[in-house]
Amino acid sequence: MSRVKAIGIDVGSTTAKIVAVDENGEMIWRYIEPTDPRIEDQVDRFLEKLKEELSISDEELKKIPIVATGYGRKLVHQAKKKLTEITCHAKGVYKSLGHGGTLVDIGGQDSKVIVISNDGKVVDFTMNDKCAAGTGRFLENTAMRMKVPLDKMGELALSAPEEVKISSVCTVFAESEIISMIAHGVAVEPILKGLHRGLISRIVAMIRSVGLTPPLMLSGGVVKNPAVRKMLEEATGQKVILPEYPQFMGAYGAALIALESTKSEN
């Protein structure tokens, strides 16, 4: 018998993740890839990989409940339930850290602030408004434009002794603003720092709109960027707590909900 009792799949706008949990809800396997436009094929591949690496037969896999989340959740036909990222992130983070608080999740195309109660329920949430300001895409776009590797961006920003003000929060307009700064001979580091400041100010405004219930927790792909973490701490005066696998919280939460559904059925 396989140890895998439930599976969660999070098809985000930038990356797709899969998590498998055991009967205690411990994360025993996870995998991440950039999101493929052919989501159905990608999910099939994910499940093949899971079967192979954990030696699970087709028969066994059929019995394991799957819950899907993320923008592409509707295309995960294997899922018995499809839930939003809000519910799944809250679930995953609550289990990982063992407490409620305010969770900031900065993903590729949206960012969200979720207030989680002491018993793990979503009390309130807000998401970025219609544009990509305040999301990972904002940083990604400019990193590309400035030819800075995405994983070096945060460090470079933090190394800047000063910063310039980027006034546009629009991803596209910020890019033109940056181009003009470069043309005026402004160095890369201060621009990067200003860019991060812009992103953080959007996030802080979202936190304020729902009210900060400590502790402050952070998840999502952008967590890998040290400048985001540090500047968020500076802006809120709160220490930021990270779960062990911040990018997998949506998929993990989905797997936990799938696991609960088997328990309630039994």
């Binding site: 923008y71 839930l83 939003t84 990222e85 809000i86 519910t87 949206d110 949430f125 998401m127 219609k130």
Partner: peptide, 17 residues
């Protein structure tokens, strides 16, 4: 898409999803 995901999350909060 954004309106849909907000409404879906809201309904999940009310436990009717």
């Amino acid at each position: 898409e954004q309106v849909a995901s907000r409404i879906a999350s809201f309904l999940e909060m009310m436990e009717v999803a």
